[in-house]
């Protein structure tokens, strides 16, 4: 028997050995890095960790702000008390302090009864969308609300109300139904404007909504970081 087959088979063996081990290595690496292969558990863990970190950071911010306000409230000589007052006003306007006053509290929730009775129907018709909250908040602003919060999230100038899949983000915090929208302002005025607007539409489509007027509504301070990295005041002579 001739040995002419030896060399070609050896060549093919080298190549296939190379491919085999290479492929094995690639697959082993893939399993570690491909998020889909681990059913996104890594991503979920990442999100949870980051949210935990955000909470910790917010606590630190709150502590620092408390220290700061203690320092600011010391009795001061000269015309500094006047500046102190201005600073306080500015903080209230910016939403960096908790505020209390007359106002209304609206609660809205998913129409789960309606969905139960019509299981074949599109569930989108029965859940609260970010647009509902956005409309109510806009109406409250039209009604001269001085401070608004949704589920404890103070709305300030840079607050977003945004749909991300099946949750709603406000101040980059995930919030879920039922939604409690608190507003400080003239209770009568505010109640009138929302009951003639979005709240009425929601009632007519059988969403469970409530509206209560209170003498004392407490609205918490904005908890997160508030920095202007790009915007700078325009100088007088530039205008």
């Amino acid at each position: 028997m001739s040995r002419k087959w030896l060399v070609p088979i050896t060549i093919v063996c080298i190549i296939s050995g190379f491919f085999l081990s290479f492929q094995l290595k690639v697959q082993a690496n893939n399993n570690n890095t491909n998020p889909l292969s681990q059913k996104n558990t890594n991503l979920v863990m990442l999100i949870n960790d980051l949210e935990e970190e955000i909470k910790n950071q917010e606590n630190i911010i709150e502590q620092i702000r408390n220290d700061l306000s203690n320092l600011e409230n010391r009795p001061l000589p000269g015309n500094l008390p006047e500046l102190q007052g201005q600073l306080k006003d500015a903080r209230i306007i910016a939403g960096l302090t908790s505020v209390i006053g007359k106002g209304i509290v609206i609660t809205i929730d998913d129409n789960s009864d309606g969905l139960k009775n019509n299981p074949q129907d599109d569930p989108n018709k029965y859940i609260i969308h970010y647009a509902h909250i956005l409309s109510i908040v806009s109406e409250l602003k039209v009604g001269n609300a001085e401070a608004i919060s949704v589920n404890g999230q103070r709305l300030i100038t840079n607050s977003e109300i945004r749909c991300v899949g099946n949750v709603i983000l406000i101040n980059t915090t995930r919030i879920a139904p039922p939604f409690t929208i608190s507003a400080i302002g003239s209770p009568k005025h505010l109640a009138e404007i929302v009951t003639n607007g979005e709240l009425d539409i929601m009632k007519s489509t059988n969403y469970p909504v409530t509206l209560e007027e209170f003498d004392e509504v407490i609205i918490p301070a904005y908890k997160s970081d508030l920095q202007f990295r790009y915007a700078k005041p325009v100088k007088e002579e530039d205008e």
Binding site: I15, S16, F19, S21, L24
Partner: peptide, 19 residues
């Protein structure tokens, strides 16, 4: 007589895992 192909296979595996 099968030594050479097996040897080749081993060389290939080593190459593939070191490269």
């Amino acid at each position: 007589m099968w030594v050479l192909p097996v040897f080749g296979l081993l060389i290939g595996i080593v190459l593939g895992s070191t490269l």
